[in-house]
């Protein structure tokens, strides 16, 4: 590996928005504590300026952990359900799954979160539950659409070539469906970050905590700190997914030299 492509890659990265938004996000995460005392000019009423319940890196870590763990579970469930519904044995259930997901999509996330509290109590648990429940739908929707988008002729050719059912799924269907599946995962994670923010209303520790504490304690400084960070977090993750999608579309199956 010579230095050429690496340097080239680095300079290309520098030109991507994800790099800059991500850098600002990280800088504010670690610098907010130092920056906060100097924000007095924004809040002439003299509110407390430094959020003390938890440090911002802690909040970010907790937020990311909740969303990440829930997303992994949601992806596993959503993908399995979609794969099942597109196999011969599960095809009968495809209509049911699609309808359930259409119905569930109308449920307000806050309502789902609130409904989880009576059985799961306050804290991270109902948040993870709501995140999983809500995260499954876009993943499943994307995977169903993606697997459904593989042309019948390609499937026919794969069967005719003698792929085993599993081989066809792994080497033909999933790679071809990958961009649409990834778009579903991207939506799911974005919704997850948003829902986790609301999770602080049921006691989960997330970047929503300063917002909720600020709203209930009438402290605009906390609200601002929380909103800016969580917005940057969401946008960074979303842009990051965008980069992965670009790479995926540009280089199918990791082929390095695509002549055009």
């Amino acid at each position: 590996m010579n230095a050429g492509p690496a340097a080239d890659g680095a300079s290309r990265l520098l030109r991507r928005p994800v790099f800059w938004v991500g850098a600002v996000f990280l800088a504010l995460t670690f610098g907010m504590h130092a920056l906060a005392p100097h924000l007095g000019f924004l809040f002439p009423e003299g509110a407390r300026l430094v959020y003390t319940r938890a440090s911002f890196p802690e909040l970010v870590a907790s937020h990311a952990l909740l969303t990440g763990a829930a997303s992994l579970v949601a992806i596993a469930i959503g993908l399995s359900a979609a794969v099942f519904a597109t196999r011969p044995a599960g095809r009968d259930y495809a209509a049911t799954l699609e309808m359930l997901s259409a119905v569930a999509q109308t449920f307000p996330p806050v309502a789902v979160l609130a409904l989880a509290v009576p059985s799961l109590g306050y804290g991270a648990l109902p948040t993870v539950f709501a995140l999983v429940l809500y995260g499954v739908l876009p993943v499943m929707g994307g995977a169903l659409a993606g697997l459904g988008s593989v042309p019948g002729a390609v499937l026919d050719a794969a069967d005719g070539a003698g792929f085993t059912p599993g081989g066809r799924l792994w080497r033909i269907e999933l790679p071809l469906a990958a961009p649409i599946i990834l778009a579903g995962i991207r939506t799911s994670v974005t919704i997850g970050i948003g829902t986790a923010t609301i999770g602080s209303t049921v006691g989960a520790l997330t970047l929503g905590s300063p917002i909720i504490d600020g709203l209930s304690g009438d402290n605009p400084a906390f609200v601002l700190q929380g909103t800016v960070l969580v917005a940057l977090f969401a946008v960074t993750v979303d842009l990051g997914f965008g980069e992965v999608e670009r790479a995926l579309v540009r280089q199918p199956s990791g082929a390095s030299s695509r002549t055009r």
Binding site: P151, A153, V154, L155, A157, G160, P175, P252
Partner: peptide, 11 residues
């Protein structure tokens, strides 16, 4: 096996 719509694997 060859079919009309070819069915080459696009990836």
């Amino acid at each position: 096996y060859v079919i009309q719509s070819v069915g080459l694997f696009p990836h």
